[in-house]
Design a protein around this nucleic acid. Structure first.
Lengths: 357, 357
DNA sequence: TCGCGGAATTGAAACGTTTCAATTTTTCGC
DNA sequence: GCGAAAAATTGAAACGTTTCAATTCCGCGA
């Protein structure tokens, strides 16, 4: 109940508080017999040092803050896992914060983390809580921007090349012969939203095609928007023959809408998703996606943070851009030209079905 | 850089430290004009109170620890999300710890959390770190056992009825006419592993059947074991006509093995999984599973913890058991009696395929 | 036995708050 | 304008560590 303090340990061991402290933390300037005595007493009393008191004087808490938009998004999970792994290996503990893409929550959490005097922060920012972030920089609290860039703020950044991801997917669809390619992209305020769209546009341009306004839809990176936009795309007079969804949740939404309308993949429509998840080999059909090295993303972010936290003086901010890759499974095929009238027939079967037929 | 402290604020506001403190925390016994002055100075100096110093004197950190085996397991995620949500609503912050089912890691983390003086702990225990858990109880640190029971430790517990889950799945398969029903269950050291198996056995018993040893396999709740055991089950001279996998990861593994062997679901073999995930409507075929109220599970755990943290004296430990439900999709059908020789034909098509035919 | 030098130990300041008894200031009724 | 009561403010202790200058201890050579 009443916590046992180092004072109790010192008294019972017949030694001053100073010595007890040294003994407990293994300083060389304490006699061996003394150290043993102290350690033994500490153990007997089940002494648990107070990290609060220690942090107060050492100015280190061995705690880092991690702010992401939503831990329930499978994309972030592996990154969180990587960050936690690396933190643990280095004696750090992680405070987890879901911002839900809400700038107010983000600012609020950042404030709390500052008050708790965390040693560093990994942040997937909404890009709309600038003032407090500037404050963090001013106070020289180690900070790594994760997954998303923040123009105007000089800080270590780890991200995946979104433009390349957009290009990869679009070029692939073009190479299959598609000309009516729709995209559901993310919010333009996020660098991820902007970049993937840019990649799509660049690829079209390189192919000498001009973008069609009604094939370009801004989603919000959540499942519903994937479903809604897909429905609307299908309702078009000239629906697309291929669809590119730029994050995992919107891809799930799109799949739902396609299933619900009985659209055959890739027979009627080719689909490229984003973010690889192992269960996407189990969907019907197995999905072709742009895969991001998520675990590495988290790992690198934490590595950079550890570097910052360890360094006396800070160097110039690093910027690290990882490469996505196209993972080809069976959700894409050349356009048949017969959609939206149902053509049926062999051409509309996925690889798996064909193997069985 | 040099942190601005309450002393600085007090000085600049021309007031004592005591008054500054009261003003900042909105005590009623400080004059309005004074309060405003202090607040204004604090804002101008960007004063950030130290949660460390405060925690030291108030003996409250507004931080809770959350220990689970693996955040990358989709089962836990929604629960984590619920816990974080509720924590945030109540002004608490969450420290996340992955134990990887490793008792040593669990003990280590619990020790760190105690040192950080967290106000409470939510724990999905490996059930093998007893001594430190006893210690936590002795120190009266609020604790809620989550998902798994711990015999011999009196603490609030929130879990799902595993036996009922086991029964539900097995009875359903029996009702379809299956007699050769295999189960891949979890480690018997975990209450979850034990209970689901018990449900399976009870259901068989109630149907007047005796368990067949080679249909009962102990997995480790990870994907690989699901795959390996499924392969071995398929290699049996008399393979089962139905398979019950008792967690999500092992179910994914089983699906992989079944796909790889070209086994048709539910034509050749009926499959019941565990834990509902929305993307299981997108698998081929959509999966019948035992769904657990995961979000509620987390929510209730955190609710109980908040109660404990708020209460002056503790009552007797609560035990809360939530109910699972069987979610019927299209991965089960009556046995055809023709497996392992491939029969093919209409009977082997899933609902979706049939709708298209 | 003395004195010396290094090793070990001590004691107190510092970290940044809150809390509360004691003190000072203000208000109010007369 | 006085005195008492109420309101506001002050100042210091307390929280539990680490750190470091100052002090004490110890063994050893002379």
């Amino acid at each position: 109940m009443a916590m046992v303090t180092i004072k109790d340990v010192a008294r019972k061991a017949g030694v001053s508080v100073g010595t007890a402290s040294q003994a407990l933390r293994g300083s060389a300037s304490v006699r061996d017999t003394t150290r043993r005595r102290v350690l033994q007493v500490a153990q007997r009393l089940r002494y648990q040092p107070s990290a609060l008191a220690r942090g107060l004087v050492t100015r280190r808490t061995h705690t880092v803050g991690l702010l992401i938009s939503d831990i329930a998004n499978p994309f972030f999970i592996r990154a969180v896992r990587a960050i936690e792994d690396l933190a643990q290996e280095n004696g750090y503990t992680v405070i987890l914060c879901n911002t839900d893409e809400d700038p107010a929550k983000e600012a609020q959490y950042l404030r709390v983390l500052m008050e708790k005097r965390v040693d560093g922060i990994v942040l997937a920012t909404t890009a709309e809580a600038l003032s407090i972030i500037r404050d963090i920089r001013r106070r020289r609290v180690p900070l790594v921007l994760f997954d998303r860039e923040l123009p105007g703020v000089a800080a270590d950044t780890v991200k995946v090349d979104g433009e390349m991801g957009g290009r990869l997917a679009t070029e692939y669809l073009l190479s299959l012969g598609h000309r009516r390619i729709a995209i559901i992209h993310g919010p333009l305020v996020r660098s991820t939203g902007r970049e993937r769209l840019r990649g799509y546009l660049r690829a079209l341009e390189a192919a000498g095609m001009r973008p069609v306004q009604e094939y370009i839809r801004e989603g919000n990176f959540k499942q519903d928007s994937g479903r809604d936009h897909t429905r609307r795309l299908l309702d078009l007079a000239a629906p697309p023959t291929a669809l590119f969804c730029t994050n995992n949740l919107m891809t799930v939404g799109a799949l739902q809408a396609l299933h619900e309308r009985g659209v055959r993949i890739p027979g009627d429509l080719s689909l490229v998703g984003y973010d690889d998840m192992e269960w996407w080999t189990l969907t019907h059909p197995p999905l072709t996606t742009v895969g991001q090295p998520v675990y590495d993303l988290g790992r690198e972010a934490m590595r950079l943070l550890l570097l910052q936290m360890g360094a006396e003086r800070r160097g110039r901010p690093q910027r690290m851009v990882l490469k996505p890759e196209l993972i080809i499974r069976s959700s894409c095929a050349p356009p048949t030209g017969s959609f939206p009238r149902r053509a049926g027939g062999r051409g509309s079967l996925s690889r798996r079905e064909r193997a069985r037929g």
